[in-house]
Design a protein around this nucleic acid. Structure first.
Lengths: 178, 178
DNA sequence: ATCCCATGTGTACGAGCGTACACAACGTTG
DNA sequence: CAACGTTGTGTACGCTCGTACACATGGGAT
């Protein structure tokens, strides 16, 4: 079977795109900036990704995979004896406490789906994945609600530059869990 | 006292900017597109708004004011005998059922604060305003949580193209209210 | 061996961008 | 009336952008 593309080259471009979005935002993403960051010629980026949306889809998908690994590696979601609300609140605190660039990157790619229909299936996939994970500890409706609430809490912290209040988050998350 | 600027001209530019963002998104906003939409020369937009951030701040502030008026005109938040959760869920349904362009516009401006520090005070103001309104019916912590949850629910509907489930929203909002 | 096609590269074009700046118009101030 | 500063206008420069396209390359199929 013939190789239809060179995964290494393609991967380098995706990695570069994620770095560019992290540093300059989606507004700073172009075939040229990504080519420079990946140290490949311009034609190479346009060949592998005809449109920037294609590149964004690949970047968002990869970011989601990285995210899923972090979640999984934390465990805690599996153990039914831990306090789920506290677990989630603590995890959000850890996430938000770190480098703001990383958080901004994930959310910017995620929120870009608002205007770019091509990204919506990937965004939906991410939300569904997280909800599925939470479903191991609670029912499906609650899981979906927890995802929504966590999104809202994170966004408020990021958009309004209010510092994250873990105690508040834990309290409110607990109310949603029946 | 000398007039420092012409409010009519300035206002026309802001209105045009809102229309442009509604139609083409923030990515399509430039001094030129807004000048064309407002039917004023390029130099006029650069004179009144040195940077696009200035223009976005004015647009977001104006969008927030329009939003606040809609909320206020609905009443319902004042009457302590109505079911608050049902009221909010119904209002979200109404909002999301209408023209998607309007909803996208508001959220895009709001979410733009993620990458543009200049917008964060305005975004914070909006969230605070809404929370204050809700505080007339409940405590401050719950009000803030309701805003976060509503944001999350709306975003999930918009980003994943899942249709809005009013019953689900009402149920979940009710859990947050003590 | 030859051909074919996926892959990779270099370059150029036209469009749109922010910005700058000189100049016009005109009410306010001195 | 004259000077001045705010407001409004037109134009041009240098830059980056997406896109297109001709050409190089190299491995698989025939």
């Amino acid at each position: 079977m013939p190789r239809r593309y060179d995964p290494e080259r393609r991967q380098r471009i995706i990695d570069a795109a994620i770095r560019v979005v992290g540093e300059k935002g989606i507004a700073g993403l172009s075939h040229r900036t990504v080519a420079a960051e990946a140290d490949v010629p311009l034609g190479s980026t346009t060949y592998h990704f005809k449109t920037l949306d294609d590149l964004l889809v690949a970047a968002l998908r990869q970011a989601n995979e990285g995210f899923a690994k972090v979640i999984a590696s934390r465990g805690g979601l599996e153990d039914p004896h831990t306090d789920l609300a506290a677990e989630l609140a603590g995890w959000m605190g850890e996430w938000l406490a770190g480098d703001r660039t990383g958080v901004e990157l994930e959310y910017e790619l995620y929120l870009a789906a608002l205007r770019r229909p091509a990204l919506r299936p990937v965004a939906a996939e991410w939300a569904q994945d997280l909800a599925d994970r939470l479903s191991r500890r609670t029912d499906a409706v609650t899981a979906r609600a927890l995802v929504a609430l966590m999104d809202g809490i994170c966004l408020q912290a990021l958009l309004t530059e209010t510092s994250y209040d873990e105690e508040y988050a834990r309290d409110v998350l607990r109310r949603v869990i029946p």
